[in-house]
Amino acid sequence: MRVGEELRPLEVPITRTLIVAGALASRDYQDVHHDPEAARAKGSPDVFMNILTTNGLVGRYITDHFGPTAVLRKVAIRLGAPNHPGDTMVLRGTVETVDGDTAVVRVLGENGRGRHVTGTVTVTVPEGERDVRTGGGAG
């Protein structure tokens, strides 16, 4: 872990299935995440990904990179452009600060509409266990 280290980008195809599966796995039954008609009535062109799924994808992106011993301490995200079916979101990350075995990674997820998610993740990767990591499989 070093300041400025860039994580390999993760390309996430935004399918209707991912949006609905993510909403249900997070127990979010808001109609805008599974019912296109209801989404349109509320001013959106189609269903869109819920924030809990985005949060889960950001967490996965970080642990994919730092491996199974990585411990998530904090995930803070802000949503911008929605993720609609047919979009492709590319997650990117840069290590912003390192304090001992803990790093803050700045994360950006963009799709064709703009910035879907911006935020930071604080992650601890225990010393000595870093060599045995099996992560880095993002892609």
């Binding site: 949060n55 950001v58 642990t63 994919d64």
Partner: peptide
């Protein structure tokens, strides 16, 4: 498991004996 399947998260920390829940599931 449903969460990990949806997210495409294959982190072994979330399966088997001693498994933890993905921390980002907190709200779920």
């Amino acid at each position: 498991r449903h969460w990990c399947e949806a997210m495409g998260d294959t982190n072994p920390a979330y399966t088997g004996p001693g498994a933890i829940a993905p921390p980002t599931m907190l709200q779920a």
